[in-house]
Structure formats: structure tokens, C-alpha cells
Amino acid sequence: MTFFRPVMIAALACALTGCGHSKPAPDLSPKGGYPKTSSDWRTPVAHITALEVAPTTTGAIVTARGLPPTQGYWGTALIPENDGQPVDGVITYRFVLAKPPVGSPDSQRVGNPPSREVTAGAFINAIRFAQTKQVVVIGADGSRTAHR
């Protein structure tokens, strides 16, 4: 037992020497904070052709169809405004998509409207949907509204 006590003291001393004191890192952010920027680089769809809101047992599915000016658009999404919270009973989305590469064959191919049509969707949970009277989807040339 006499051997055990010095070994424990030595082990404890070694362990405690690794514990140092830390100080807070300096604040390197610019005065006034960082500028608020949108990280979404996509553009609004040129024209919204249809909007549907389909109730489900857990909320609702919002589906919007749009028409870009040429072929090759991709990465469609309905981006919620106000973090998807209804404002005065209205949930608003921006219908965005990514442009085809400049000079690519798709960016120059117009084709007929049905061949260019794109679709985007979003889900509204039951709690938010219960507070919603209408859904608005905004595109480049205007918006579409669906009433409950």
C-alpha cells in the first residue's frame, strides 16, 4: 500500500500539469458585424405556370411549375420567406432555379414550352398549415396564389 500512494500522487500530478488555463479568443469580426448576404445564387423562374397545394395527413405539399426562357435550367427550389412562417395567414415562397452554363447548347435551345417546364416542391407541416389561409409563390414576372 505504501508503494501505491506515491504512484497515485505522481500520476495525478502528471495529469494535472496538462490542465492549463485558457483565455477567450479575440473577436475578429468586422465592426458592425458581417454583411447579410443571400447564399442562394439561383435566379427566379421566368414565369410560374401552375401552383397546387395538396393537403396530407401531416400537413401539405406545395408544387409549383414554371417556365424558364431556354432549356437546361436545373436546381429548382421553393425558398420560404420568413423562415416558412405564415404572416397574416400567408406563406410565401420564391421559385428559384440555376441557369445553364453560358454558351452551352442548352442555354441556346428554346424548344417548345412543355419541354422547358420545371417543377419545384415544398412541404408545410400540419402546425403551420393550420395557420395558413393562402400560399404565394413568387417568380420573375409575378406570382401565383393558392387559397385554402
Rank of each mutant, 00 (worst) to 15 (best):
M1K: 13
T2C: 10
F3S: 13
R5E: 13
R5P: 04
M8K: 11
M8W: 10
A10I: 12
A10S: 13
A11W: 09
L12D: 12
A13E: 11
C14H: 10
C14P: 06
L16G: 07
T17S: 15
T17W: 12
T17V: 14
G18R: 12
S22K: 10
P26H: 09
D27A: 11
L28H: 10
L28W: 03
S29N: 08
K31H: 07
P35R: 02
K36C: 10
K36N: 13
S38P: 03
S39E: 14
D40I: 03
P44G: 01
V45L: 05
H47M: 13
A50R: 03
L51E: 00
V53M: 11
P55V: 07
P55F: 08
T56D: 14
T56Y: 07
T56L: 05
T57R: 14
T57V: 10
G59C: 11
V62E: 06
V62G: 06
T63H: 01
R65T: 09
L67Y: 00
L67V: 08
P68T: 00
G72L: 03
G72S: 02
W74I: 06
G75L: 01
T76G: 05
A77R: 07
I79F: 10
I79A: 09
P80H: 11
E81N: 12
N82I: 01
G84W: 10
Q85W: 05
Q85P: 02
Q85K: 14
P86V: 05
P86L: 12
D88H: 07
D88A: 06
G89W: 08
I91P: 03
Y93Q: 09
A98K: 06
P100D: 02
V102K: 14
G103S: 07
P105L: 09
S107W: 01
R109D: 12
V110H: 03
G111Y: 02
G111S: 04
P113V: 03
S115G: 11
S115E: 15
S115F: 03
T119D: 09
G121W: 06
F123K: 14
A126L: 14
I127K: 15
R128Q: 15
F129M: 15
F129R: 14
A130E: 15
Q131D: 15
T132W: 11
K133P: 00
K133Y: 02
Q134K: 08
Q134Y: 03
Q134G: 04
Q134L: 08
I138V: 02
I138Y: 07
G139P: 00
G139D: 01
G139T: 05
A140I: 04
G142T: 00
G142H: 01
G142P: 05
S143M: 02
T145P: 07
T145W: 08
A146Q: 00
H147V: 13
